[in-house]
Design a protein around this nucleic acid. Sequence first.
DNA 1: GCACCTATCTTTTTT
DNA 2: AGATAGGTGC
Length: 797
Amino acid sequence: MNNTTTDQIIGIRKNVLKKEFSRMNDRQQEAVFSVNGPLLILAGAGSGKTTVLVNRIANIIRYGNAYKSENISNDLSEEDLSAANRYLSAGEPLPFQVKCHFAAEPCRPWQILAITFTNKAAGELKNRLNSMLGEEGDDIWASTFHSTCARMLRRDGDKLGYSNHFTIYDTDDSRRMMKECQKSLGIDDKILSFKSILSAISRAKDSMIQPKEYLQQAGSDNRLGLIAQAYKLYQAKLKEADAMDFDDLICNTVCLLQQHPDVLEYYQNKFRYIMVDEYQDTNHAQYLLVKLLAQKSTNLCVVGDDDQSIYKFRGATIENILNFERTFPNAKVIRLEQNYRSTKNILNAANAVIENNTERKGKTLWTDNPAGEKIGVHTAFSEQDEADYIAKKILESVAVGRKFADHAILYRMNSQSNILEKIFIKSGIPYRIIGGLRFYERKEIRDMIAYLSVINNPNDEIRLRRIINQPKRSIGDKTIAQATEIAATLGESVFDIIKNADQYEPLKRTAPKLLQFAATMQELIDAANDENTSLNELYHLILDKTDYIGSLKASENDDAQDRIDNINELASNLIKYEEDNGEEASLSGFLEEVSLLTDIDNFDANSDSVVMMTIHSAKGLEFPVVFLPGFEDGIFPGIQAIYNPAEIEEERRLAYVAITRAKEELFIVNAESRMIFGSTSRNKPSRFIEEIPEELVARSRTREWKKPAPGMALPTSAFEARVVTTESARSFGPSNLIHSEPPKVQFQVGDGVMHKTFGTGLILSVSPMGNDTLLEIAFEKAGTKKLMANFARLQKI
DNA sequence: GCACCTATCTTTTTT
DNA sequence: AGATAGGTGC
């Protein structure tokens, strides 16, 4: 190092680093290299924030703080420097050694914590880290708030009085639990609903208010007093059941860290770098959690976009991001304003809409992308016509070479998917619905999960109740109530009481049934404890012993087969879980994974079908062509938001998210009249449409009155059958593409065909597209339709 | 204890 | 319109 000065070395090192991350723009690089101290990245939609996060983590692991540090490694040799210079000038690969020698205070993967909101975001982050860093990437804690907390609580939850295999209650479990509480406190649901109590409790937990404090704060307020009682009882019951709800995961972790300095210190030392994605969606408790963990290192990087804050209803406070600079002194702020996703027209429309909000940090996205098509704004007659229009547009678009999967339909509320679904079935457009009735929310799945939960944790009273008479065992509410009461008086668990049912007078009559149930469960518990029983075997043992499927078949329910399919689907999930986790696989592990899983996590872009979901679910995703139906005042913005300026702003942010999902084409649709709650209403076009400059818009409307959806007038049994197939297929799983094994029949113009719904018809035109064929068919009764050959289930005649 | 009927409510959005 | 919870009658 004789001839080279320190400054020169630092210069070379900076250039090497710059080159290593040269795929990033200047702002992004700045974010990647700003490693130490608090950092707020205001990342607009489509500005490449995940790329920045991934590269920032890679930089931290490989180089640490080298870009900003003035220190030079002692290991650095002349040889290293000339290698670096060759790398800079001739593009020769940089030896690993040199990378190491250039690093300053690098960090190990397991010292990094990256928190996201959805499993999907976490999964994507993990994937990209893995492809950038290889196996090293696996050791990074990249997960959601909830699973991060669950992990910490499994380790140290005993300090709060929970076991390490505690159950995670979802919304439905919480509801059942709260109904119990209402009953025992004599609270009439009409006067104080379980819903409002639960949301009050949720807010309390967000603010880290314990039942005791809640009661104090309630003062003489009757309503709040009742809520406080319910809160107290609810928490007591949860603890007794060794269970936590979603909010508990967060606030119990905060409690754990606040009350146990040793635990706090452990994690503060462990995590040298912390990153939080979607920071605008954090609530107060999550903010506290992050603050606690990052207090010591202060190496906290949060990424967010105040314009995309759409979870206020869930307790997210936009103040977290607006106040970041105040809370974390010396915070650096970096704005990422270049959008790589959308065309100029789409981006300008989004900018124009969001500008009408007053509560903003303020930023304007720009792009180098071409102007692209104008934004289609279409006015339809009815919601049917709206769906018809979208179907037609998609078929046109596929006809000129796009894939079905390039199209997404994003709506305000789940119920909007119904008509679309019907029209798509009719037109033979393959689609998938994300959200709505979720796989894990189906009765039969919940029942199976409940069995597994009780086996895992017999104290789980709520789930024990769920299955005690499912399938029917002639154990009624009264018996259960009595058993519960006895359990409460004796301070034992309900399961223990049932096991000895014959010893209690009030249970005498049903004792044999109870004993039999208890014996079955005990057998299953023993099987679960046996090392040699795999989860899959256990699952089939449950099905065997309970004859769940048998009773389903006996019920003669129309959807019995669907339900059986779902039950088998859960089995394949179990097998997959076991395969993925090998030795680590455990019943409680599976249950945890399941309870934190949502549908969007299973969104698989590989199958070629149109995607439908709510705008909320679509956050973080992008699609070449986006349709936004229901842009009407009263739908979007929703009726409840119209007279509330703050809520209008939230709705507008939602509109902003919706618009910015589109890469190339955007169609906004409204209907002049539509059915809501079974009655027809006429809505004005959404105010958000008016906020888009007219020069960006191409308007159209359905002119002549079309007979409302001819296909719908044919309620044949075949049509109904299709709907049922669709229902089961939309759930989730390895292939939740709506498909039937495509009959690969070749069609020609002039062929006569038979369609299940439309009857007989004649093929007018055949246009191959991708790996499918668009057919135009004149049906004898149903008129002329365009159908995709592979999905239409046509038979030649 | 169970099946069937009716009344009521829903539609915000999710971990 | 459709689902679901709760009540009534067997």
